[in-house]
Nucleic acid binder design. Structure first.
Lengths: 218, 218, 218, 218
DNA sequence: AATGAATGAGCGTTCATTCAT
DNA sequence: GATGAATGAACGCTCATTCAT
């Protein structure tokens, strides 16, 4: 995961595609069962029923395999999160506060993260993050999505919306995954309530009257 | 970084203490310059101007060196964060909202995290986190601190205070480090404003009237 | 040499088999030239003209290489010793005393041990013996062989035959190897005579009249 | 144990002598409890309550310590074995066969070897023997002793006596230690009987009529 | 004499990667 | 393409030995 941006070659044949699939699936399994340190190329190739040499036919190096595993997880996440967010926004309608949409989004997120906690854990706890890497890109796209919605909901200028989006996206991402992985001593309903209060309160203030900070900005 | 709690021996002599210092400093440097994977014992020893054998007179294994580097960083953090938080609370006084205290704490946090961004980066991005490890313990102690203050400020029952503390601590931790490491396209003052709005709004609602969620709890 | 029974993988190809041969041969050479302590994996690999990694494709650990060297020596020994013993017994015929058979066996043994005295020396002098290890097993099988022959020759009960076999096997093994390794100041013919007298006298007494000890047993 | 003949310096002072004692005692203990591979200089020094540097004040290298441990064991053995042998010879008187003396010697030997089986085991199974080393010298001195007695009992020429002594000494040594360490499935009394028959039969033939080998010498 | 901190060559082993088949 | 044997640099760590104090 040394952020060199190594990508796999595009397979041209059906056979090749199947091989890539097996390798990625094996990479995922080995990653989950043996951890990042145990995810050696030889082990992944063996788990895929493929020779080490073949692995290198499709992936330039070890990181590329794990990057692909991560990419797929992140792509699936992004699709579900985007959809859940947009559905929630649509369902809540324009009139009310943001709380219903936030709450619905949170529920969807917790459902999603809870589905593969083992993979989530190894990604969050063991996979090195590269500064300009996939996770940053992922978050950046969610930022854009939320920014757009905020702007349509009457947030002030673009910069303010971006800042607000950056803030809530990271907050929600970190606390939902944190809840799933830490399993702190309170119920899921509690986190949902708290996070809804936290985020909806913030967004409502941001959207209605613009600047709020009663103690004056710095 | 296997949280088995391996600790270095207590040095008995000034000479020994100096050696430990050199090794820890070298560990820090190598960690920053070569990353977690590049932080081999031989490299750390060489950077410290010391033989590999000497390293093992003071540290039982490789993890112990990096754990010590992390511990020192975390201990310093905890001291500064705790102090900044308590000072901010005291300075703001009981009457006003929480915004001034939150803002002051955030400023202190950003100052602190901004001092060694390279080390912060490698810690956040590359060091494996173990579930019961030092970083969890660190966060747990900050949770306790904030919980206590919330209770003295009129939060409801202990459980509610704990949930609120868990929420704001993770939010503030993640967003302040995120700002320092991501360098998103807006100014520090903006994050401070946004985070102050986010957190103070949440806490004020939590402290004044108890449950707030206007859309009804789940 | 930790008798955990680690065995090498079965080579699948001719190429592989050749590699195993080279490694085992190199292990033998290094063992003989540098001694047990000098028989490091890297040295063996280098002597075999092979990388350390290759060694570990065929042997699970260091001990497995040396165990294989020892096994081959012992297997060859056992085959030759068994054959020589049985041939000698057959050639001597049932009527006469045991002396001719004993003498022929001794000659064969001294021939055999004298062929690779360097390897014999390092095995006897430097290789750790584990109580339940290969050497014990080797001796045990020879014990069985001799026991069987003694029983067919009219030894008393099984227990007596086992004790007699145990006695003569160890005696012969130790004195023949001792002669080869110590090179005491007398000729090979002398040892053969003395050992023949020692063993044949004992066996003849045991086989003819049963208990002999004229001073009375304890 | 590389047979380079390294010896410790002679201590000149009482203090020094005490230190040597502690080191040797610690060497013995560590050897027995941790085996040959576990008997590192640092461990021995620590067990002796002495610094590694001090150990090297009295012993030129690691082997010298273990050699000293072995020497003391061997010296004690030699004293006891010699005495037992000579006492047995004297007690049996000149008239009878050799059986009573052999039997008494065997009993004494088994008593002696049985006293510290742990140390005996590690010496026999793990300590490298050097060709011209202490154990050879030990056996050589016993050879001389037995040779002398055989000559006084009417053995033929010196060479014949030496060969007979060499033969019986190795036989008795190997089988008595073998019985103690192997614990084969029969009683001590059985080994005593068998060995007595083996050795006494041989010696009686050698002493009475000279050459015996009925099948003709080679 | 005595200490014990310091050394550094060397150990057994792994694994990302290559390349002859 | 696909294989899998082969590579070799590097790893974490040990320990006999030295030497400044």
């Amino acid at each position: 995961m040394s952020g060199r941006g190594a990508r796999r070659r595009e397979p041209r044949q059906e056979r090749s595609r199947a091989m890539v699939e097996r390798i990625v699936a094996a990479g995922r399994d080995v990653l989950v069962t043996r951890g990042y340190d145990g995810a050696s190329t030889n082990r992944i190739a063996a788990a895929a029923g493929v020779s080490p040499g073949s692995l290198y036919q499709y992936f330039p190096d070890k990181d590329a395999v794990l990057t692909e595993v991560l990419d797929r997880y992140l792509d699936a996440m992004e699709a579900r999160v985007s959809r859940a967010f947009l559905d929630s926004v649509a369902a809540a309608g324009p009139g009310a506060g943001t709380a219903p949409a936030v709450r619905a989004t949170l529920e969807a997120l917790l459902d999603t993260f809870g589905e593969e906690p083992d993979l989530l854990r190894v990604i969050v706890e063991q996979l090195p993050r590269s500064p300009g890497g996939r996770r940053a890109a992922f978050a950046g796209r969610i930022d854009d999505l939320v920014t757009t919605v905020l702007l349509t909901r009457g947030a002030g200028d673009t910069d303010a919306a971006r800042a607000a989006a950056w803030t809530v996206v990271r907050t929600v991402e970190h606390l939902t995954t944190g809840f799933v992985l830490e399993r702190p001593g309170f119920a899921r309903a509690v986190v949902v309530d708290e996070l809804t209060a936290l985020v909806a309160g913030y967004l409502d203030a941001r959207l209605s009257g613009g600047r709020v900070a009663s103690d004056g900005p710095s």
